[in-house]
Design a protein around this nucleic acid. Structure first.
Lengths: 221, 221
DNA sequence: CGAATAGTGTCTGTGAGACAGTATTCT
DNA sequence: AGAATACTGTCTCACAGACACTATTCG
């Protein structure tokens, strides 16, 4: 199809969330190419039409090659587009968000990646501040009625840890006994043999998610 | 930036919903260009990088020029992409969904547009069936905790009409008195002077939305 | 033993479903 | 008057928050 207008640039940007020092953080990477070379921005890259089957493939490839991460939670957020958002011309960025436990991130933190609390991110290139804001909004909203926040924890965790991460994500205090009741009824998690002695006065039972995939609930937590 | 791969095709596709004969329907338009010329598909078009400020501008332009509609509810759904979804090559479609009252649609139904109940849509070109499925899913989910379904009604409507449209969208029966209580408490609507005699045994009060924009609630309806 | 954190039991208020009952119009 | 639809009032049950209480470990 010969078009009478130039085809746009198509990229994928990733909002990679983790909990660090009890705060919700986003990963930023120093850009190694113009424009904005050397500045911190979201991890992202071009869609390679010759090798990526679709935008999901682009996202996982970028996550693997630029952050050394694989098999973590990843979902499409929304697409940011326009003539003005990128000095190279009309562009669209299919933004995704990813969740990773801090422990999985430690080994790859050499690659010019910094973790910043989401409420302390300064001005970024492109419309990356808007993308992060949307990512946080989605995370908060979806966290209230799904197992989303659990993907910020390691595979095995305690109930207090799970409650903590829900509180971090939702930015609200959760009633302890009510939280336990609901988690119990919703059958999101199952116990693991063994106890958890370190890190608290009384050892806590260990659990894991019953399903690998995201689960959504009817009611709110 | 000279890339070593071809830039993708970028389009916008619209899932235009309305209620017709008490059923949730989607608008399909006969394609006037290849590929799939002459077949019914979602209303859509290329992003014109020389005239559209962003994808939202593309969506409103397509809605105006191909369906003759302006000022109706429109929101981005998600982006469908890949090498295989379009015979012209690697493409991305920024899918949107729009809601329109049937009355507003009547004058523009000459333009090769058909309305099909969402559960009776046959196989469509590209991945348009998947796009519609996603649109319906979003509409149902968001309808449960927002004023979304009201955008399928004319500006002035009765409470029974509002309840009906919520039931259509959510595909579930709603308790009448509970619905009225919640709508009342949420202050979504305000009464309009005048009565509604036609169309029911006892005239019903008329209401309009208190805000033009979409409102989200904490609880479900 | 006391501090600290994990986990349980119980009371109470609120909101939603069910449904009966009242109001208004038409034939 | 009776049918049909709009609207209102009330009962009850379930669930979420509050909070007191018990349990287990450590120093």
């Amino acid at each position: 199809m010969p078009d009478d207008f130039e085809r746009p640039i198509l990229t994928v940007d990733l909002t990679l969330f983790t909990i660090k020092d009890t705060r919700l953080c986003v990963a930023l990477q120093r850009r190694d190419k113009p424009p904005f070379m050397g500045e911190f921005a979201l991890i992202g890259g071009y869609v390679h039409t010759d090798e990526d089957a679709d935008a999901w493939a682009t996202a996982t490839r970028v996550l693997r090659t630029k952050a050394g991460l694989e098999g973590i939670f990843l979902e499409q957020l929304m697409t940011f587009s326009g003539a003005a958002r990128d000095p190279r011309g009309w562009s669209a960025s299919i933004a995704h968000y990813a969740l990773v436990p801090e422990a999985s991130l430690a080994p790859v933190l050499r690659r010019d990646i910094a973790l910043l609390p989401v409420d302390e991110v300064g001005p970024l290139p492109f419309d990356h501040n808007a993308i992060i804001a949307r990512g946080v909004q989605r995370l908060r909203a979806k966290g209230a009625y799904s197992s989303l926040p659990a993907f910020l924890l390691p595979a095995v965790f305690t109930l207090p840890q799970l409650r903590d991460v829900y509180e971090k994500v939702m930015g609200a205090h959760l009633n302890d006994s009510a939280f336990r009741r609901k988690i119990e009824e919703l059958q999101i998690i199952e116990p693991v043999k063994g106890e958890f002695s370190k890190a608290s006065a009384r050892p806590a039972r260990l659990y894991r998610l019953r399903k690998d995939a995201l689960q959504e609930f009817d009611r709110k937590l």
